[in-house]
Amino acid sequence: MSFSDSSADAFSLTKVNFSYPGSEDGVRDLDLTIREGERVVLLGANGSGKSTLLKILDGLLFPQSGEMRAFGHPIDEKALDDPEFNAAFRQRVGFVFQNSEAQLFSSNVWEEIAFGPLQMGFSVERTNERVEDVLEFFDLASIKDRPPFRLSGGEKKRVALAAVVAANPTVLLLDEPTVALDPRTQRWVIDMLVQFGHAGKTLVTATHDLDIIGEIADRVLVFGEDHHLVAEGKPEEILLDRDLLLHVNLIDPRYHEHVYAGGHRTHHSHD
């Protein structure tokens, strides 16, 4: 099986349901299409199912009912058991986990970045070249020999992103990429995502940070606390829908952010 006959849809989900054993968390009755080259933000409060959806899109979890297709091909355990298909799918879809500690499992930065290309079957020379390029692009050359436990939070996030990008995926799935980062690293991540968007990558970002979606999304999908997709639209439409944001627990009535179409924002409390 190959991806050469893929349609323009990066992902299409039909009536997808997933819940964890003994829990109601997950996603419910999800119909969704993400086009290639599109920048989509999954917006929702904690526990609304954003991370679960990313894992489904990455073929790490499989729907209990419904169907998930990537590039026109159904994605299930059987399909990913085919080594050729698995390698092709994994190369096209990269996943940046929220927890960098889980993402960075190699013993140093160099090996972390080399992991993906090596698994994809790159030759040693090509892997070396790719890692050197990535180290330079992400400005990580000075820390290439450092083990993960000697990296700061910001450095870990940069390495995690670099390690995933090293395989040159078509789609980047990002779980809360700016959470717990200092402002400068947050800005660095956002600028990097904007750059990837310009390079034609499909970006699917799960977040509850309203400040960043205007820059990194063409379309926003809003998830409710009942794990249903409750709305979708352009970032400015979603950000101006105060009732929707209140309903899905993304703003608080006493303290929230006003977002105006012109991009002018003010913070104030309603006491």
Partner: peptide
């Protein structure tokens, strides 16, 4: 995270 980056049970290193 390993599966997501193409790990299939055979470690490869340089």
């Amino acid at each position: 995270a390993m599966l997501a980056r193409g790990y299939t049970g055979t470690p490869k290193s340089v």
